[in-house]
Design a protein around this nucleic acid. Sequence first.
DNA 1: CTGAAAGCGCTTACAG
DNA 2: CTGAAAGCGCTTACAG
Lengths: 368, 368
Amino acid sequence: MNASNTSATRETGKNPTLSDVARVAGVSYATADRVINDRGNVAEKSVRKVHDAMSELGYIRNVAAANLSRQRTYRLAFLLPKGRNAFFSRVRAHLDSLVEHLVVDQISVDVSEIDAFDVEGLKHSLLSIVDASYDGIAVVGLQSEEIAEPLRKLQEQGTSIIGLVSDLPVDHRAAYVGINNVAAGRTAGRLLGLSHAGRKGCVQMIVGSLDARDHADRLSGFREVISEDYPNIELLDPIMTRDDAEKVAAVVKEALVAEPKVSAVYNVGAGNSGLVAALEQCTRPKRFFCIVHELVAHTHKALLNKHIDLVIDQRPDVEINRSITILKALIDGREIPPMQDLVPTIYVRDNLPSHIPDTTLRHTQDHD
Amino acid sequence: MNASNTSATRETGKNPTLSDVARVAGVSYATADRVINDRGNVAEKSVRKVHDAMSELGYIRNVAAANLSRQRTYRLAFLLPKGRNAFFSRVRAHLDSLVEHLVVDQISVDVSEIDAFDVEGLKHSLLSIVDASYDGIAVVGLQSEEIAEPLRKLQEQGTSIIGLVSDLPVDHRAAYVGINNVAAGRTAGRLLGLSHAGRKGCVQMIVGSLDARDHADRLSGFREVISEDYPNIELLDPIMTRDDAEKVAAVVKEALVAEPKVSAVYNVGAGNSGLVAALEQCTRPKRFFCIVHELVAHTHKALLNKHIDLVIDQRPDVEINRSITILKALIDGREIPPMQDLVPTIYVRDNLPSHIPDTTLRHTQDHD
DNA sequence: CTGAAAGCGCTTACAG
DNA sequence: CTGAAAGCGCTTACAG
């Protein structure tokens, strides 16, 4: 009935210090320091003695003290595609709201803008920040091998690199923080299938560009599920929009007139403000089922308005928090703490976060 | 085209130190220290001078240095309901996997077991840990005013308290980490409504106990949505099971025979291993739609097996990480960093995390 | 290859 | 009410 302590403990507080290790090993503090930090120039024998003492005492290095003495500061940068994209506005907003809380942990973060989907642009951006010698960077990447060289330079110089939202070539980054987009597409497919409850249906898919890995992945995941499990649902050829809201609006209107049998729309990419506008003007008596990606101001609103039924979101806020945690661990040279996969999050109008996502609408028009 | 730095920065590194403040204020380090830490015994005039210097320099206290000098250690405890519950096994597993990563931040965490749903038990548990003088505790709470007294004692003694998963009386905790269960129920209702696509339906609801706030909240959220938006769906009276898997199994079997019109089952509470067992034996030709709560080993499996269609999960891993972040901030006396609401997460079989949740099956039978 | 000493930015007695 | 000094657990020159 009373509280009984169990397992998960480990005495903290009287942790052995490096002087303890040195004393037990019978060497000076300086030598002990040399071996635990691999600074070399230590006799084999001393190394052994120190290692023995370490394991005997269960020594754990106090990173905070080390960082203090070294005046360590974490200089981070996020490289985000520039432009009028609501999703990345949300990312920036979260980053902005975080900075004042990060200073107290000696973390500073800059955000740099890069040209979206442009290998050359990304390459130049990477090159241009080499001199800034950041301790860690998170970059919304591209798969091209062309950026291998700047990434290598950054690595050589000691900056830790992770891919964010869209991965980098796997050999040139320490981690990837983002969702599995095939899974995201499959999830959309599953829910769309469910919503038809065995009835016949027909889906208009909308895509930004098949060159974008995330779009292509979502599309193929979606197709997989529909063809595997929902033979009652027909798929029309996807329409490309380059994520342009006006294009999306035009396409949606046209498709709905030309194809009165359409029962559902799935927008794999961005430009949802156009989609919502088109739906608002739609005069079809029978509404259709609508799934889109990323919760931002207008998709949030459309969910409440019932113009959209489901939003699949990748939780940029948790992606950012994770990025920072991981970069810090990388920089400190420690293990990355265990974390569960990032999962594509499904929003209906009932599990929406109470605070509308911080989309700073600093751009006159908001194309996502 | 090149990276251009923007906003989110703030110089770190050459942050002014307290000696700078003291020098600018024209007082000794010790006095400056007294005023920034509110230790009293300082002349009005000195206080003012120090404050002026602080804001002039933009002084930010270095918490790491302070903690080092004070040999600060974060002694945390989690009070979890004891017993054979798969959800809390998952919580414990995550906690266990975290401890070795927390030591390096001078954080230790104990986990204590308390009697589930038992006010007296909780009260005694709280009382019994007063002497341990933890710096912070996270407790799976109850709403009763009976526990106000032990909570007050803990607070007076300086331990920070938060409610986890199930809240404490609001006056006696600094924060609550958990989902909104009305929203969770509404979400279940919405998806169940969707799955019927306008067809007639009939739902058998299963509940652990209406005395449990979370169960009651989910049930009422669920009912709200169905009655608001899905008049085609009928709700049978909920059946109580005290979260006992065998009871759940029996109830499900019986209900399905007695009510052949049942098109869906929603288990608001636990005991899902029983539900799955019953479904596996079910011989009805027409399968029905099934929604449950919490992703654990057997619900995960049932999702893949198609015995269950949807799982609504509260992501205990993120709840725990957040609890620790919040407790640490509370203990350091700093602001809690901005975080988005915890949202009820929807799993279909396509957005499942790749690693099966760590349910340590240390109990022979697993009742959730 | 090894060690003594100062310093990182704070807190905590201790003396005035 | 005020200040000088030692110490927290490390790192970084600097001297041997």
